[in-house]
Amino acid sequence: MDDKRLLEVKDLKVHFFTDDGVVKAVDGVSFHIDKGETLAVVGESGSGKSVTSLAIMRLIPNPPGRIVGGEILFRGKDGQVKDLAKQDEASMRKIRGNDIAMIFQEPMTSLNPVYTVGDQIAEAIVLHQGKSKKEALELSAEMLDLVGIPEPRKRLSNYPHQMSGGMRQRVMIAMALSCNPSLLIADEPTTALDVTIQAQILELMYKLQEEIGMSILFITHNLGVVAEMADRVVVMYAGRAVEEADVTPTFKRPKHPYTMGLLNSVPRLDLAAEHQQRLEAIPGNVPNPLRLPSGCAFHPRCKYFQAGRCDTDIPLLQDTGGGHMVRCVRWAEIQAEQGVTA
């Protein structure tokens, strides 16, 4: 693995064996994250984003879920590259929280109401760094200060119910960063927050990344925040990556019809009013994971659909130049068509 690579996911497959059949929640996803980089994973809900992140942490609920294929290569703090898909539970426990930390969507429920904030941050520090409870609390106060909570020492003895949602998400971030992980997975960290608080939390994460230099796997269904936060984007649809590229080209010139649809369905704040296009939602719904459409899974909703080409074989992920990967058989024609109309 390349020296600057932190994480490389290759052909990851996670299936859920339910009573109704096999749900291929993630079916051959590959991506990588370099050191200090932020990778955004976007897609409608149900596209397999959370399952991907849980697979990296090896927290897929089993049964019914299982990683059925692929590799998750990760460079630990010690420089060793390990395949997380093959680690046993004991070594995964050492990695979780210490090398890779995670923050969740729901700040209201991701802190335990029974313990003080200080106790909860200190728990991980005691666990991974072998510090005494007192030292751990000291460090917890520093972490709270770092994430911008005023009077951190006093706050240590607060209970979660005494804090607002934004404050709690800050606490979650403090907790996640307390052991200095090299990768932070943020699964829709701001979805449950008010818009103003969202902006504050995003800024905080941005700032912390500059200071600490960890990599972030940023999961969201909100394209608005991607451009601000991420260096590269992976767009997922029905368990597969359909487009992957640096943020700038993807957002200036998306090549996959699904990404175009996603972009057209959010207001573009970066464009002046006269350049705004009309917002249009992607027609139809996310397909039932038990009965994915044949060929390109997006074809029933795609306006460039062409019978015989799109619905026969699953399109391959092709490099369209400069590491811009697209999974669409007609991408070149669509580009040309758009070039004409634009």
Partner: peptide
């Protein structure tokens, strides 16, 4: 299914610890 149980697991807590503490 509470997120704090999952969060504790994601911080490296063992099953036993998640059960007894969380």
């Amino acid at each position: 299914e509470m997120e704090y149980a999952q969060a504790a697991q994601a911080m490296g807590a063992s099953d036993g610890r998640v059960i007894t503490r969380h």
